[in-house]
Amino acid sequence: MANDPLHQFQIKPIIDLFNVGGMDFSFTNSSLFMVAAAGTVSAILFAASRSASLVPSRIQSIGELWYEFVANMVRQVMGSEGMKFFPFVFTVFSFVLMSNLLGMFPYFFTVTSHVVVTAALAVFIIAMVVVVGLAKHGLHFFKLFVPSGVPIAILPFISLIEVISFLSRPVSLALRLFGNMMAGHIVLKVFTGFVVSLGALGIGGIIGALFPLAMGVALTGFEFLVAFLQAFVFAILTCVYLNDALHPGH
């Protein structure tokens, strides 16, 4: 791999599929890792649910912990009424988590380090919030932008701020995940790149490389934490926003 820290984000076609109107829909390394993430999640959960027994096996325990973790998150934020969104939130959490974690392996591609992917997920979630909100509450859903108890004189300005705040949700959702994943990988690449280039300088360089090596190890641990936390934050904000669709402002 080249020493360019951005090289790891390069998208390369693996199989050229078809071009429609000048748009390239090839199966790329990104596509491969999307399939891998979805496949890994499915494989783990399939193994966990295959021999469902009263006293769970290890893999079954993992699956059930995973399930309960997300189920509690949904219940906590949206109440039991929100459990109809549980499969969706679970899929979002699992897909993002597995994409982040797979990206931690050397030479693996990180699907979530591309802003289109995170933006598409975020826009889909917000669109879902709007659709569910309108379907459930009709025009009352727009009360989300009209806080109660505000003087009529400054209400337009407050509403404008609320609208911007609402529109900023998908942006922050997308940028946070994308930014964290990209920045983490760049920093990792830079530090580990130091190790390689310093190590090539001889004895002094090898001693000097110990610091970036230690940093690299520490950062790797931190990036695993970030990979989990970003998936968690993405999922819990999905819950929070969907909760607004279920219970818009009073």
């Binding site: 998208i11 829909f25 090839s26 990104s30 596509s31 499969p87 969706f88 289109v116 598409a120």
Partner: peptide
């Protein structure tokens, strides 16, 4: 230029997983 492919495969994989 990579967006169409990413979006298409995201929809496919995410939808299938869902």
């Amino acid at each position: 230029s990579t967006y169409p492919s990413q979006l298409l495969w995201l929809v496919i994989t995410f939808g299938a997983l869902y």
